[in-house]
């Protein structure tokens, strides 16, 4: 699908600034990055508070959270569009807002807006020219990108006549114009139809496979769950959960047994040793406090003629984790950790 070749930069040395060592292999690093706009009625700061995150090169990094949780603020801080009130950050080892790293990044804002009077080709020519690109190389690149996002046959339509989906597609194209190493994507799939969503997800994984780093903001957790390598969940400006998706979805010390072709009698028997048992989609799902209990139960089940569909660590959906984390009164409910 992607014809262009990425040039992954792996600089194996360290840069000394302010007496600290920053490892260049990190795409993004922030340290207690804060942007406080104002304070609410209870005197709590509103904005982004003390965000520390590390994004390694080659990852798909998800910044998740409900509306107003500080996702876009984080993006704007990382792009140098706004300035932190405290803390600091680096992108590719450069201070925030530096022109140097902007050569290597692409940005798709949420619900992107472009010069309305340009058509797709002109728009990409303009953005390409900002990188000093031009001539036949740029033309070839534009054709490639327009075909990639499925806009080639609509390339002469002016932006003001675009649908939301078309804006999103041309937005992806402009973000990729300089073949960036790091992509910032804000609500990538908003406004897209299901086929478009699937296309975009393919695009993301393809890009990751080419060694690109992707920094994705979204409130659509279901979409992000299979894609992200690492996620941060933000709520009301604060970091609630951080980790790889695996880490977040696994429930500590619980083992899950999924059975089909089970009987009510078997269910009653298992329920005595299981922490809980539930029926979903004609399958019996039981959770156990430790592995030995689970293995014993599995043995019983096989003897009773049931079929084991799955046996392993208990997994939750990202949505569950999210609701658990942000559901309470406090910005972050840390009770389960």
């Amino acid at each position: 699908m992607l014809l262009f070749v990425s040039n992954v930069r792996r600089l194996g040395h360290t840069l000394h600034t302010d007496g600290r060592c920053w490892i260049i292999g990190l795409a993004i690093e922030t340290e207690k990055l804060s942007k406080i706009y104002t304070h609410d009625a209870n005197g709590q700061p509103v904005g982004l508070i003390d965000l520390s995150l590390v994004v390694e090169e080659g990852q798909i990094f998800g910044l998740l959270g409900p509306n107003g949780s500080g996702k876009t603020t984080t993006l704007k801080l990382l792009l140098g569009l706004i300035f932190p009130t405290a803390g600091r950050g680096q992108v590719f080892g450069q201070p925030l807002g530096s022109n140097t790293y902007k050569q290597r990044i692409g940005f798709l804002p949420e619900g992107p807006y472009f010069y309305e009077h340009l058509n797709g080709v002109e728009l990409l020519q303009f953005y390409g020219s900002l990188f000093g690109m031009g001539g036949s190389a740029l033309s070839a690149r534009i054709e490639e990108l327009l075909k990639l996002v499925g806009m080639w046959d609509r390339r002469f339509i002016r932006v003001r006549d675009y649908s939301r989906g078309m804006r999103q597609r041309i937005g992806v194209a402009q973000a990729l114009i300089n073949d960036p190493d790091l992509l910032f994507l804000d609500e990538l799939t908003s406004g897209l139809d299901p086929i478009g969503v699937v296309d975009m997800h393919h695009l993301l994984t393809d890009l990751r496979d080419m060694g690109k780093t992707l920094f994705v903001c979204s409130h659509l957790l279901k979409d992000m769950e299979p894609l992200c390598d690492r996620v941060i969940i933000l709520n009301r400006g604060k970091e609630c959960r951080t980790g790889t998706v695996d880490e977040l979805l696994r429930v500590a010390d619980q083992v899950r047994l999924v059975l089909s072709n089970w009987s009510d009698e078997l269910k009653t028997r298992l329920a005595t040793s299981a922490a809980d048992c539930e029926v979903a989609d004609k399958q019996l799902i039981c959770h156990f406090q430790d592995q030995s209990q689970a293995l014993a139960a599995a043995t019983i089940a096989v003897e009773a003629g049931a079929v084991i569909e799955d046996l392993g660590a208990r997994r939750r959906t990202l949505e569950e984790v999210f609701i658990e984390a942000v559901g309470g009164e406090e910005p972050c409910d840390q009770s389960s950790e």
Partner: peptide, 14 residues
Amino acid sequence: ELRTIHTILAKPVS
């Protein structure tokens, strides 16, 4: 206001 500036300043334009 139209937020066109975001995509421009995210490019190497000071």
